[in-house]
Design a protein around this nucleic acid. Sequence first.
DNA 1: GATGTCGTCATCCTTTCGGGTGATTTCGCG
DNA 2: CGCGAAATCACCCGAAAGGATGACGACATC
Lengths: 165, 165
Amino acid sequence: MDILLHNTIMKRHVLIFGFVGGLLIATLQYTEYRFVIIEHSVELYSALVAILFAAFGIWLGLRITRSRETIRETVVVREVLVPAQAPALEPFAPNTARQHTLGITARELEILTLVAGGLSNREIATQLFVSENTVKTHCARTFDKLVAARRTQAVQRGKELGLLP
Amino acid sequence: MDILLHNTIMKRHVLIFGFVGGLLIATLQYTEYRFVIIEHSVELYSALVAILFAAFGIWLGLRITRSRETIRETVVVREVLVPAQAPALEPFAPNTARQHTLGITARELEILTLVAGGLSNREIATQLFVSENTVKTHCARTFDKLVAARRTQAVQRGKELGLLP
DNA sequence: GATGTCGTCATCCTTTCGGGTGATTTCGCG
DNA sequence: CGCGAAATCACCCGAAAGGATGACGACATC
């Protein structure tokens, strides 16, 4: 789960789930009588309930993530267009869309840019008037979001993703 | 496990959820016996089972789709990667002249390229079938020639000087 | 007013880097 | 042949970077 868990969409889905879940349970309890009447074993009945609900959960999970992917793909389309229209002479327009989907804040990108400039954490700290620890925290978070283990890797990823010139 | 799981908070939430889930299961298993023994209604028992498995189903569904989403994301990234690198029509002609004037050997440039790729010394060593020490000496010499103190700086300089794409 | 995000800073601990120094082997060239 | 450049590797040591975790204030959102 992630950024989008904070979105209203997600919350709404959870609510829907609660509602539908309750509904299903009610239905189950209703249908249960029929099973009991037909004298099925409790184990079998429980297994059916289990399977049904597991399937339901998977379905719901799919639903939720599908809406997420829709959003993401829309973003991607735009991203492809940007570099395609502004080829060479651009003063470099950072890919804000991707930055957003990755959850990278402005400050983090700022630090990443300085990292790409070959500065050490201490130099960055001095330049931004913050402590070296702060820079390290920002770096750690950024590396996490870029799935990078080293600063060189983060820089490389940043360029790949159009976050850096 | 998940690109988007950057927030420690989220990690904690997932952990808590897992823990509570386990606790619920244990409780359920415990109470189950009591219900059965005390001959409680099958309805109540079934409801509990239903809830339990609904939760499990949701969890499972989310887990499955999450990993799938991760894969999807990776693919998308690749898709964007290609057009991002393609517009540069030139296959990149390294500035051999400058390399020569700086006294940078072919091997050193090779290592520098891998450094720019975000690899660690160990990874480079593995990839080139040499020891890590060797990579380090190559790096040191290269940094020296590029007047760089850090690898990020060396990479930046290398790009400036047209040694790297 | 509770919740979440962001930026800030800290501490502890491990890994990685970088500098310094020296050694060996291979290869080409005068 | 001897010389030097290049590549290889080793060891030590200090500095830098990275991971994990916790905390706190400001601010926005609900």
